[in-house]
Design a protein around this nucleic acid. Structure first.
Length: 615
RNA sequence: CGGGGCGUAGCGCAGCUUGGUAGCGCGUUUGGUUCGGGACCAAAAGGUCGGAGGUUCAAAUCCUCUCGCCCCGACCA
């Protein structure tokens, strides 16, 4: 983007190190492991107050302000309006959506003096829907797009990696409201604008990111994209097609056409049972039986919980078996799509009672347990040697053969279906380009946008009359950015062995002036002059005026990661110059004449802004 | 929630097995010498050893309970 959007205001600010709080440390607390956690602690950006609860010190807060400002500009440009909703949400709000139950322990709850229970907002679909329901009277007031930037609370089972997964964190959340999906003012139009706004935000932050198709998850809805910072230490696995550009979250990723078996291949030998007592997983069993996992069948038992787009009838199955190759993972979403039923992993007790030897199930159960549908992944459908569970505790079997051991039901689509059932993996065929193979990468989810549809408006009674006086449920979208997580992701992605390397757009200050002799009046005068000149041109300047040895100052400078360092030293000043060094530069820097130094800085900021926006 | 581990000075750690008046490094303060990539000398401040209970003449150390934190997994708009 442009240079003028990088500074926080028309006039930059000047701060002296000795008068603010930047407690750098040579060593990080032992509990910190991930780079962003270690560096943000060591560089004096954050302090831990409890598990997943952090202080944001002045440097961190400046980064968060800059990030928030970028977010605001892009949200406003996309037509959204900022507001601020309560953090304290009375649980009655959840009466329609039941999400206080769905969220379970994730929800922080507080009790007031009267005994009323409120939740600390983990996200704001309910309050914003409630707000709009009570304040919109006409379809003419749609579309509407509202956002806020505030602290969210989620009692994560396991907070980790510092700011990457917190119990208290800063989030930008936006919610849009529409009468229609398509056309002007429809959800799709806003969704596309928000998508572009997100691309703009993360580009301006200098982040290297991938947009992936994602499952909409428990929040419901029909379509969603995640914005992932590409980073090997990320928690999420993403898959990309290098040819078509298709990218998806591992839960969502489709797999291209694969060849399936015909169920006519001959057996490789007699059904041979093997006693395999007390072996915990497929790898252990395989080792014990001397069979590789990709020659074993894994059959998972699901319980039918509902029918997609309808009510269950007595004819519908009770159980769904999903058989994949031993080295593959069953994907619940794909099971749902392939079967047409919503499912949950079977309750062990109930499944045992129905006749499944949990842990030792084979596809043969489609014949032996009434009300069972069998789904087979193409990679598991071939002929050749297979090992499988033997349908009795502590036993597996070799030489499973589809035709011989399952038989006629293979030809009845009511009972047996062949379908993509598993998570995609590196090397799988791309679903979008013939011959191309998927590659995997790791990512940190920093943004997520959803088409919610009418899930919340239906649950909470948000409807409106259209121009034909027909009552219509309002269609919604929601759009989140993990603001504090984005800051951490940025450090995770951009650092070296000496410390943080901030992209220009997020750096707490663009310039650090390192005074070699803070007590020297001449250095004080020139430092002040340079700082004022830079500030006047919108640059934020931090002056290291501490009475420390040069080595300490240089180490700290690298640690806190300010993009441009100006060093005030006798040698350079004698030549009428200051030393100019970028954080990314390996060498010692070059001499900038005092008269030109401001121009050098402005130019460097502009170059960085352009380069980062291009990424 | 399952598994593993850790709580001793602001940070990093030792001491615990075999109970006996709490130690090291970094940091901090003071004085001096230094001063372009984490200086040196000297002095000093700083700890109810996570908490409660128990055993004992005596507990950081042994026992019981409890709280907190980290890592792996499960989970996760």
């Amino acid at each position: 983007m442009t240079a003028n959007t990088i500074a926080t205001g028309p006039t930059g600010s000047v701060q002296r190190w000795s008068r603010t709080l930047i407690p750098t440390a040579r060593e990080a607390p032992a509990e910190a492991e991930s780079p962003s956690h270690v560096l943000l602690l060591r560089a004096g950006y954050i302090r831990k107050l409890g598990a997943g609860i952090y202080d944001y010190l002045p440097l961190a807060w400046r980064v968060l302000r800059k990030l928030s400002e970028i977010v605001r500009q892009e949200m406003d440009r996309a037509g959204a309006s900022e507001l601020c909703l309560p953090v304290l949400l009375p649980t009655e709000l959840y009466a329609g959506t039941k999400r206080d139950v769905d969220y379970g322990d994730l929800l922080f709850k507080v009790t007031d003096r009267k005994g009323s229970v409120a939740a600390l907002g983990p996200t704001h679909e309910e309050p914003v829907t409630e707000l709009v329901r009570g304040s919109i009277n006409s379809y003419k007031q749609l579309p509407l797009n509202l956002y806020q930037i505030q602290t969210k609370f989620r009692d994560e089972a396991r907070p980790r990696s510092g700011l990457l997964r917190c119990r208290e964190f800063i989030m930008k959340d936006a919610y849009s409201f529409h009468l229609a999906l398509e056309g002007p003012g429809g959800l799709n139009e806003t969704y596309d604008r928000m998508y572009q706004a997100y691309v703009n935000v993360f580009s301006r932050c200098g982040l290297d990111f991938t947009v992936v198709e994602a499952e909409s998850g428990p929040i419901g809805g029909s379509a969603s994209h995640e914005f992932m910072v590409n980073c090997a230490s990320g928690e999420d696995t993403i898959l990309k097609c290098p040819v078509s550009g298709y990218a998806a979250n591992v839960e969502k990723c489709e797999i291209g056409a694969r060849t399936a078996g015909t169920f006519t291949e001959p057996p490789t030998g007699e059904w041979t049972e093997v006693h395999t007592p007390g072996l915990p997983g497929i790898h252990e069993v395989g080792k014990f039986m001397k069979v590789k996992p990709d020659r074993m069948l894994k059959t998972i038992v699901f319980q039918v919980t509902g029918k997609v787009g309808g009510a269950l009838s007595p004819d519908d199955p009770t159980w769904i078996l999903a058989t994949v190759r031993g080295d593959h993972d069953v994907n619940e979403g794909k099971v749902k799509a392939a079967s047409g039923y919503t499912v949950a992993l079977a309750n062990e007790v109930a499944a045992r009672a129905a006749g499944f030897a949990i842990g030792y199930v084979s596809p043969r159960c489609v014949n032996t347990v009434p009300g069972t549908m069998l789904l087979i992944d193409p990679d598991a459908s071939h002929g050749g040697f297979w090992a499988t569970g033997a349908d009795k505790p502590d036993h597996h079997a070799k030489h499973f053969n589809w035709r011989r051991d399952v038989g006629a039901k293979l030809d009845q689509p009511r009972y047996v279906k062949l379908a993509d059932l598993r998570n995609a993996m590196e090397g799988d065929p791309s679903p979008r380009a013939e011959g191309a193979k998927l590659v995997t990468g790791r990512g940190i989810e920093v943004g997520h946008i959803f088409k919610l549809g009418t899930k919340y408006s239906d649950a909470m009674g948000l409807s409106i009359l259209d121009d034909k006086q027909q009552k219509r449920s309002v269609i919604m979208g929601c759009y989140g950015i993990g603001v504090s997580r984005t800051m951490a992701a940025c450090v995770e992605m951009s650092h070296d062995e000496n410390g943080i390397v901030w992209p220009m757009g997020l750096a707490p200050y663009q310039v650090l002036i390192t005074m070699m002799k803070p007590d020297d009046p001449e250095q004080q005068r020139i430092t002040g002059e340079v700082a004022e000149r830079l500030a006047a041109r919108g640059v934020d300047v931090l002056i290291d005026d501490r009475d420390e040895r040069p080595g300490v100052k240089f180490k700290d400078a690298d640690l806190i990661g300010i993009p441009i360092r100006l060093t005030m030293g006798d040698k350079a000043l004698a030549a009428g110059a200051v030393e100019f060094k970028k954080r990314t530069a390996k060498d010692k820097g070059e001499l900038a004449p005092l008269a030109d130094v401001a121009d050098w800085v402005i130019e460097a900021i502009r170059d960085a802004g352009v380069a980062e926006a291009k990424r």
